[in-house]
Amino acid sequence: MTTTPIPAEHVAPVNARQIVVGLDGSPSALVALDWAASEARTRGCGLTLVYAHPGDRYSLAVLDTAPQELADDIFDEALDRLATSGFGDLDVRTVLRYGLVPRILLRASMRAPMLVVGRQGLGRFAELVMGSTSLACAAHARVPLTIVPESWEAPARARNCVLLGVDGSARGEAAVEYAFRLAAERGARIVAVHAMQLPLGYPTDRPLRPDTARYEEAAAEVYLTSVNPWLAKFPDVEVTTAVEYGHPALALAQYAAGADLAVIGGRGHGRVTGMLLGSVARSVLRRMPIPVTVIRDPRA
């Protein structure tokens, strides 16, 4: 394993051949590291491990441990984990920086192919279902961001399936494109799921009612405008489409067991489209049992 420490004074983004992984000493971050290492090997690139200390270099961290010592312990644990799990041949770099954690991770990953973080971490917000760092990164990342749940384990055999959330919005097109390009590169299939939130009180078992056809036609239009153009560009990618009635997060979760990765857009339709991260995206990130890659619209 080649390891290259990068001085704390170095604040420029890492190069385009290094996946950035946020570490904080939590079990969730180590699981994210496992996923990132596998992804780096598949892509033929390296890893840059970033520990962001929320203070200045002269402050003391928890347990009266100096930031540099704390970072060394975190990096040593990560490097040992990579070596024992068969990723000792990767080019790995380590970075200690000081300041706001999300801001540091976002800046470090500006030119990287991907930023990877764990869904939960240590800190004042650790009691939340989703850590504040991962949520902030999802709202602002300009590169693909993959959030890995702490419960994730590498499957014995890849399922060769990308789960794609489709909402039919123009802002979601970047996620559709990413999913198709990824599936084409990996020889994987796509399961595209569109969830329709019906009016309150509307039965979800699709009974024979006069307005049922209207919802079916709307779903067909979503696939016609969002998926079909990319299917024409990538005719070798096998695509299965599904329409579910209910909340998008619950609909996607139904298909997670058969997929390696879920891909969603950061924003879409809904009452809170003005927010930096849509409510649907936040809900999906909280619930999915598999890694989720968030692709934000570059125009956002």
Rank of each mutant, 00 (worst) to 15 (best):
L115N: 01
L100I: 03
A83Q: 07
R103M: 10
Y51R: 04
S59P: 00
G131K: 12
S132H: 05
V116Y: 04
L63F: 09
L63Y: 11
A78K: 01
A138L: 10
M130H: 11
D76H: 06
A83N: 08
F87W: 05
L79E: 07
T42V: 14
E127M: 04
V117S: 05
A112S: 10
R124L: 10
A40I: 15
P102W: 01
A37F: 14
L63I: 06
V62M: 05
S85C: 07
R41Q: 14
A141S: 15
L82N: 02
P144I: 06
V117M: 04
V50L: 11
T146L: 06
G123D: 10
L33D: 15
V143N: 06
A112Y: 02
F87M: 03
T65W: 00
S85L: 08
R142M: 08
L70Q: 07
W35K: 14
A29V: 13
A36K: 15
A71E: 03
P144A: 02
T48N: 13
V101A: 02
A29C: 12
I104S: 03
A36F: 14
P54N: 13
R119L: 05
D64P: 03
A61F: 11
G46A: 12
H140C: 11
S38T: 15
T94N: 05
S134D: 07
R124G: 08
F125M: 12
L145W: 01
V50D: 07
L82T: 09
V129K: 11
L145Y: 00
D80A: 00
L60W: 06
A112I: 11
R81I: 02
V101D: 00
F87G: 02
Y51L: 03
Q120L: 11
G46K: 15
I104K: 03
D72S: 04
L100P: 01
H140N: 12
L105R: 03
A32S: 13
A71F: 03
L96Q: 11
H140I: 12
A36E: 14
L145F: 02
L82V: 09
Y51H: 10
C137V: 15
I147F: 04
V143E: 07
V92N: 05
S134F: 06
Y98V: 09
R57A: 10
A83R: 08
R93C: 00
H53Q: 12
G131A: 09
A136Q: 13
R93P: 00
L49G: 01
Y58H: 12
G55Y: 05
Q68Y: 01
T48H: 08
R41D: 13
A83M: 03
V117D: 03
R124D: 06
D64L: 01
D80P: 02
E77Y: 00
S132T: 12
V116A: 04
L106C: 09
S59M: 07
T48F: 06
P54A: 06
I147D: 09
Y98N: 04
V116E: 01
